[in-house]
């Protein structure tokens, strides 16, 4: 083995196998130039050990622990709420899906009921284009007459009523109010 091989080993003395360490020691016993380098490497390692031996501690260990725990607790509360919400949703997914659908249906019917009531009392006047045209056909496009009969026609406006049925209803109301 040449000296270069042992130069490598010198820098890794602490990591060498027993066999390599013995081989290095035998070489150093016979090689003056390698002994010089080995001495320099040893001095370097001693300097590194002096830095490594420095004890690093927080100025106030209890306060440092408290600051870490405070930061963790802040995360914990956020995480816990998030996890609890997710667990709750997962366990009750079917129940709350049905409840959500029911809620939307109630809201929808309430809106429709309100529209119908407003229409009946004459509060709700903006009609769809189709309704205006239909009404105009029934009462010969006379706005004054239309307004007079609107409350009577409002009874025809119910949720899900088809247009044809609505037309029939309007006709019947028109006939009854004309008479």
């Amino acid at each position: 083995m040449n000296c270069n091989h042992y130069h490598n080993l010198m820098y890794l003395k602490a990591e060498l196998s027993e066999q390599d360490l013995l081989s290095l020691q035998q070489h150093l016993a016979t090689c003056t130039s390698c002994t010089q380098l080995a001495s320099e490497v040893r001095l370097f390692q001693e300097r590194m050990n002096s830095i490594a031996s420095q004890e690093v501690k927080p100025t106030n260990a209890a306060a440092f622990t408290a600051s870490i725990m405070a930061a963790v607790q802040a995360q914990k509360s956020g995480t816990t709420i998030h996890v609890q919400v997710m667990n709750w949703l997962q366990k009750n997914i079917l129940r709350y899906s049905l409840a959500t659908v029911s809620l939307f249906q109630i809201i929808f019917f309430s809106i429709e009921f309100q529209n119908t009531r407003n229409h009946a009392t004459g509060l709700d006047f903006p009609q769809s284009n189709a309704e205006v045209i239909l009404d105009s056909e029934m009462i010969h496009d006379n706005p004054a007459e239309r307004k007079q009969h609107t409350s009577g026609f409002a009874a025809c406006k119910t949720p899900f009523m088809e247009r044809l049925a609505y037309l029939e209803c309007l006709k019947s109301k028109y006939s009854s109010t004309s008479l």
């Binding site: 004890e55 690093v56 501690k57 927080p58 440092f64 622990t65 870490i68 963790v72 914990k76």
Partner: peptide
């Protein structure tokens, strides 16, 4: 979720952690 157990882990390892970060 046991914060007390976690605190003991922190107390046991914080000097080691700080030493690495400081180096």
């Amino acid at each position: 979720g046991d914060a007390i157990a976690f605190r003991r882990l922190v107390e046991d390892s914080q000097n080691f952690a700080l030493s690495i970060a400081y180096k």
